[in-house]
């Protein structure tokens, strides 16, 4: 995602993944391949794809290797489990008469280099038990934590980031 316009960007190839996703979404939503549906879909996808030609899509930097796909499945599974745990944890907090919160914003670091990997990490953190990404600056993430266990960068990183980073590292690097 450098600021220099590359030949790749000029040729419009960067918008292909986003375009494909948008068009697939549109066709699936309409459950039809009639020429009216397709022409509207293609026009709008091209427009959006062009507007966000420098933007990201989940496929932009995904590595196309078997290990990467396996990690993708692992990521989804880990994520769903964490989402359920996160809700049970929240239920326990909200239903306790004394509301056991100990909130704070901690700083954690990610080893991920790719913007898409970092974005997915931030999203995953937001949906895991008691954590919410507040700010993302380069390799640093500022995370709001309902029950702060440690304000130390390394300890908090191990607790919040490591679980997902394991998978995302393989998928995006």
């Amino acid at each position: 995602m450098g600021s220099v316009t590359t030949l790749h960007e000029l040729s419009g190839l960067t918008m292909v993944p986003l375009l494909a996703i948008l068009l697939l979404f549109w066709v699936a939503l309409n459950a039809s391949l009639s020429w009216q549906v397709l022409s509207v879909g293609i026009t709008v996808s091209l427009l959006i794809g062009w507007l966000f030609r420098r933007g990201l899509s989940p496929l932009t930097e995904l590595r196309a290797t078997p290990a990467s796909y396996r990690a993708g499945l692992g990521f989804v599974w880990h994520f769903l489990r964490e989402l359920v745990r996160s809700n049970l944890n929240l239920a326990r907090v909200v239903l306790s008469p004394d509301l056991p919160v100990n909130p704070g914003i901690v700083k954690v670091r990610t080893r991920l280099q790719s913007p898409m990997g970092r974005l997915l990490l931030a999203n995953a953190i937001t949906l895991t038990p008691g954590t919410l990404t507040v700010e993302l600056q380069d390799e640093w993430l500022y995370v709001h934590w309902v029950q702060v266990e440690s304000a130390d960068i390394d300890a908090a990183t191990a607790r919040i980031v490591a679980g997902f980073e394991r998978y995302l590292e393989v998928m995006y690097g």
């Binding site: 989402l83 359920v84 996160s86 809700n87 929240l90 909200v94 509301l99 919160v101 909130p103 914003i105 937001t126 949906l127 008691g130 954590t131 919410l132 507040v134 709001h144 309902v146």
Partner: peptide, 20 residues
């Protein structure tokens, strides 16, 4: 309703609406 500030409220709102 119960959470003490905006950040904790966002936490409660996001997780439950997603899974719910």
């Amino acid at each position: 309703v119960r959470m003490p500030d905006v950040f904790n409220r966002i936490q409660a709102g996001t997780k439950t609406t997603t899974l719910g």
